[in-house]
Structure formats: structure tokens, C-alpha cells
Amino acid sequence: MFRSDASKLSLILLMTPFVLWIGLLIVLPQLGIGYISLREKVGPREYELGLANYIDFINEPIYWNTLLRTAWMSILVTALALLVGFPVAYYIAKIAQQRSRAALFLLCLIPLWVSDLVRAFGWIVLLRETGVVSGMLQTAGLISGPVELLYNDVTVVIGLVYTVVLFMIVPLFSTLDGMDNSLLEAGYNLGGSRVTVFRRIVVPYAMPGIVAGCIITFMLTAGSYLTPILLGGKNSSWFTEQIYDQFITRYNWESGATFGVLLLGFTSFVVWLGLRLTGQSLANTVAKE
């Protein structure tokens, strides 16, 4: 009796901050945003409920092109982050010496100690016309005049991959770290080549980590603001920039809220589609164990 009361109490104590956080900072604002997005402005301080904001969005190709572009580039960034992150995670979890493992893992986390903004400025220092890279290329005699390496899509993608790759490495590392080496050895022993072992044993085993990492990176990328704006400049056409624009520059909260809802809805849809296409489900990957 006492035991169950105590455990109930501790459950409540543990859950309260979590529920408050979810409720006050996520659910409530989202509901508010959803509500605002459904308001149509019919006159000064006069509103009606309706879908006009959504219809405006559909009728303006710039808006939905930006959303599609953001989604595509986020998928690209996610794929690249997986490509870069997997070998790193695999190396730390399976190849590196037991002793150096913790140090390597910490090393991966170091960039998190510096804020996004500072990291983005780091890129700017390197890549601008008068920046380090341009200067070095000139000194080496590879180019004759200064080059502008900022404000193009490649730079934006690279910058984004750099920002989010950690969130790919961490879940990958933890699943791979849990994999018994004897599974790999059994894979070889039974006649598998490197490719077979990787494809049929490592990847399926790491799937929960891959799915979790991809979802986190994709959502982070699609919702990021600083990196695309600072590295891509005015023409980066990132969807969060549109949202910012509507809220702050034009003071059109209704439209901004609509874009916010659309971004959430669309990215969720992409995640769902990705899960469907790869035959995964949240229940048997992320929620496993």
C-alpha cells in the first residue's frame, strides 16, 4: 500500500515538470498558432474564422516553392549528415580503442558548447570575400582575385550539415555501441563479405538509431533559421525566413501562424512518408527497448 502510494507520488513529481513543459511551451502555443492561422482579417480589428490564409498560401507560388525547397534541402542535409555521421559513429563505437572512446565522443560534443550564432559567424569569417579561405587560395596562386564563397546553396547545405551532424551521430553511436561485436564476427564467419555484413547486420541493427537521427536532423534543419540566413544571405529562400518576415517585418500574424502550421504539418508529413517508404514505424524503431 505504502509502496504503491510512494511510487505514485514519485511518478507525479517526475511527470509534473515534463507535462508543464509540454503543455505550456508546446501544446498551448501550437493551439494558439493554429487558432490565429484560422482568423481572416476582414477589416481593422475585425476577424472571421476561415481558411483564407491557407488559400492565400496556395495561390502564391513563391510561398509553397520556398516550403518545397526547404523540405528538399533538409532531406539533402539529412542524407549528407547520415553519410558523414555513420562512419564517425561506427568508428567511435566499434573500431576505436575502448580507452579513447569516451574522449572521441566528447570531442564530437564540443561544438555544442558554442552557440549556433557564433558557429555560423565562424563560417562567415572563413568563407567571405575577404575571408581566410579566399585569402589562402590567393596566396597559393590558385585564384587571381578574391572570391565570395558565401551566399550560395552549397555553403548553406555544408553549414547545415555541420550544425546538425551531431544529432545524427549521438543516436547512431548509442545503437551501434549496444551491438555485440560477436554479431559482426558471426556475420563474417557464416560467409558474409564486408558489404553483406554491413547491409544485412549493421544497418538493420542500427535502424532505430538511423531513424531517430534522421527525424531529429530533418526537423532541426527544416526549422533552423540562423544558419541558412547567415550563410545564404537574403536569397536563401528558407521557409523559416518567410515566417519571420510575416510575423516581424509585415506584422501579419495570421499569415505567419499559417506558415508555422504548414511547416509543422509538412515536415511531419515528410517524416511519415519517409517512415512508410523505408518500411519503418516509430513503434518498432525509436520506441524500441
Binding site: 555485440d180 560477436s182 544485412r200 541493427y205
Partner: peptide, 27 residues
């Protein structure tokens, strides 16, 4: 190792958890 015709039963068996019994044997 993958070309030697000696097979090994591991200390903790190392059955592949993501495959069913048939797939394990068919591997």
C-alpha cells in the same frame, strides 16, 4: 574468415536479433 570452412558457435550464440529463425539459418 569469411572464406574458411570452419563455422563457430559463439559464447553468447550471436543469433541475429533482427532476423527470424529461418532467416538466421538461411543467412
Amino acid at each position: 574468415p569469411n572464406k574458411r570452412n570452419v563455422k563457430m558457435v559463439f559464447q553468447h550464440l550471436a543469433l541475429f536479433p533482427m532476423m527470424n529463425v529461418g532467416e538466421n539459418i538461411a543467412y
